[in-house]
Design a protein around this nucleic acid. Structure first.
Lengths: 360, 360
DNA sequence: ACCATGTAGTCATGCGCATAACCAGAATGT
DNA sequence: ACATTCTGGTTATGCGCATGACTACATGGT
């Protein structure tokens, strides 16, 4: 005898099975407790009744009563379905969706007006994560206030991408940019380059710091001198000049989007890549650029990161307090790809850049 | 004094403002009733208290109490974030997200195991739409049982794409394929073609029926004979042969994905498009194929359809019973695009197909 | 003086579920 | 024979909110 809205409730099931509503709940959520507490024949009667009535739990009621609704919130700092940029989030979300499905969870996407600083999760009283069991967060902007807010309440969450905060242990699934960068740089040294430059945005966010760190590890291991160049805001040509001025025959580029521009500038000046200049990207380009070039560098396991973040969140839901700090911070390996934009240095050739742009 | 979970409740607000919880609720949801029922200074005190406490409504409680949670469910019959096919859903979802944001609603995506027949919304007791205020549905498969189920309960929903059912008025936002197809065919006649063929999957789903209908309208208006060819499962070459065997110099192709294959086959045989054969697509290709060709045909307003569907759902939520059958079924116009794959027939030239593949 | 009408709220209840607290009867220990 | 433990449940309660029913007081009409 379903209610007015056409859905059966636990009470309906209970009535049909001749037990109390609490018994139905026990059987459904009791776990060990339930199994020990309810007799087998009663159990079967109730399960039959559930089948007959087509009962499905009302997630709102489950949440309100302090249970889990099998709903995972997803918070992005930008629209999930962007119109232009061919989709920074997409690969992550493939993994998120797949894993959520695996775990039988639905996904709740929080919309919100993107503000210039990105949108905040908890501030301004507009957000209502209350309905979700927990929340997966991803995006390039990270708001330290959001981090602190999240840590201060007991709302489970997981970041995609490494995040650190003074306020506590931030649960995240990151990629090991340090190792990946180190390996790429080592590879360039192994090819015979005397010096390998790091050309990038010298910011202090986690992704940048990690790459710089991996670079320095490789340079130190090879007993060479680091050449760190600030490429912020540079055009391809300017960046190429900068590399040439520093006499470099090889460089890793961060963020990766700059690399194709440098390559284009080089080709335009009659140089060859990797003949005259070896280039490597530190991670796949975000906007799926005209990609017939097989770049040397590494690939970020975005899909797996999304899936792992959902799993991390789920693990927290299942055992609210058990997880230690190490279990809360998970790191996945990147795949180094050989590619075709790096090779041995041309012997006796003038290093890249301005000078070779005006051949005599 | 927020609760244990760190969030303020209406009771907290009420205590701070010196009123009862019911008054807070009244002010927040009363609409006209509330404004008449509560004095202005009390109102202000409560609003201040809300600001001070940072109160945000708990959607679970709102739903449970029969109210609206500002959550819109989205049901697709396939994964929302597909790995391969460059994204049939994406354009719709851009509109859905934008409109949901506009209306201040969050989006709940139902995951579920895609089965060969697509997944069912309500069957099998696994789905829980209960948390959402209503649901937007989209996908190529439509399950007549789902339609009947949905109509039988009072759960608001809206389809993206026309759907019909014997069980009642199905709320949907469709595109006017009939008019668009008619206009495209008229255009081909206007270019001077004696006969214009319809080559397509002759199915009975709404999108196919609409296109066939528009084709026949145009043919009738031009007082010509219809040439309807079944293109199901044909390769480009086979389809080209079929057109040639029927002596056609122009054809509209459905689904649109077949058109590029026909064109390629034609070019491979030394024919020219539109010189020897005019082709038009009935709608944009779904998988964003290598698109440097400017196809004659029409464009489906996917983004607007997504937005309109959300709006349609929202309208139902606001006035549960007011909407008549006409207001529940909305149709958007497609944009006819001239393109470059249709032109006047070559005078005195042999029609397309096999024969011109063996020039003497 | 009395009822009708309006104003500004409060009270009580229930949505569907999870869960702590309780309880009856049977089995077991001593 | 009586206390203890186990088995198999039931009762009671509250989560946070919306909403119908009710109340207390003021104002106005007759």
């Amino acid at each position: 005898m379903p209610g007015a809205n056409g859905r059966a409730t636990q009470a309906d099931v209970a009535r049909l099975a001749g037990v109390s509503q609490a018994t139905v709940s026990l059987i459904l959520n009791g776990g060990d407790t339930g199994r020990r507490r309810v007799g087998e024949q009663t159990r079967q009667r109730v399960l039959d009744a559930i089948r007959m009535t087509g009962y499905v739990a009302n997630p709102a009621a489950q949440r309100l009563a302090g249970g889990r609704a099998r709903i995972i919130g997803v918070f992005t700092y930008e629209p999930v379905f962007p119109r232009d940029s061919r989709d920074f989030y997409h690969p992550f979300l493939i993994g998120v969706e797949a894993q959520a499905e695996q775990l039988g969870c639905d996904l709740l996407f929080f919309t919100g007006t993107p503000s210039p600083q990105g949108r905040r999760l908890l501030g301004d009283g507009s957000r209502r994560l209350g309905i979700a069991d927990g929340c997966v967060l991803l995006g390039r902007h990270d708001d330290k206030r959001d981090l602190a807010d999240l840590l201060s309440r007991d709302f489970p969450f997981a970041f995609i991408g490494r995040r650190e905060s003074d306020a506590g242990t931030v649960p995240y699934v990151g990629a090991d940019y340090v190792t990946a960068t180190r390996e790429v740089v080592e590879r360039l040294f192994a090819l015979g380059h005397e010096r390998v430059g790091f050309l990038g945005d010298l910011r202090h966010d986690e992704p940048s710091v990690d790459r710089a760190s991996g670079y320095h590890q490789a340079v130190r291991a090879a007993r060479r001198r680091p050449v760190v160049l600030d490429g912020t805001g540079l055009t391809g040509g300017e960046a190429l000049d900068l590399l040439g001025d520093n006499g470099l025959t090889a460089a890793v580029v961060w963020p990766s989007g700059l690399a194709p521009q440098i390559r284009s500038a080089a080709l335009a000046r009659g140089m060859s890549v990797p003949g005259d200049l070896s280039l490597a990207q530190l991670g796949d380009v975000e906007d799926g650029s005209p990609g017939d070039i097989d770049w040397t560098g590494f690939r970020i396991p975005r899909e797996q990161m999304g899936a792992a973040a959902v799993q991390l969140l789920f693990d927290q839901l299942v055992s609210p307090t058990t997880l230690g700090a190490t279990a809360l911070q998970r790191t996945l390996a990147c795949t180094v790809v050989p590619g075709t934009t790096a090779g041995p240095p041309a012997p006796g050739r003038v290093p890249a850049g301005r000078r070779s742009a005006q051949p005599g």
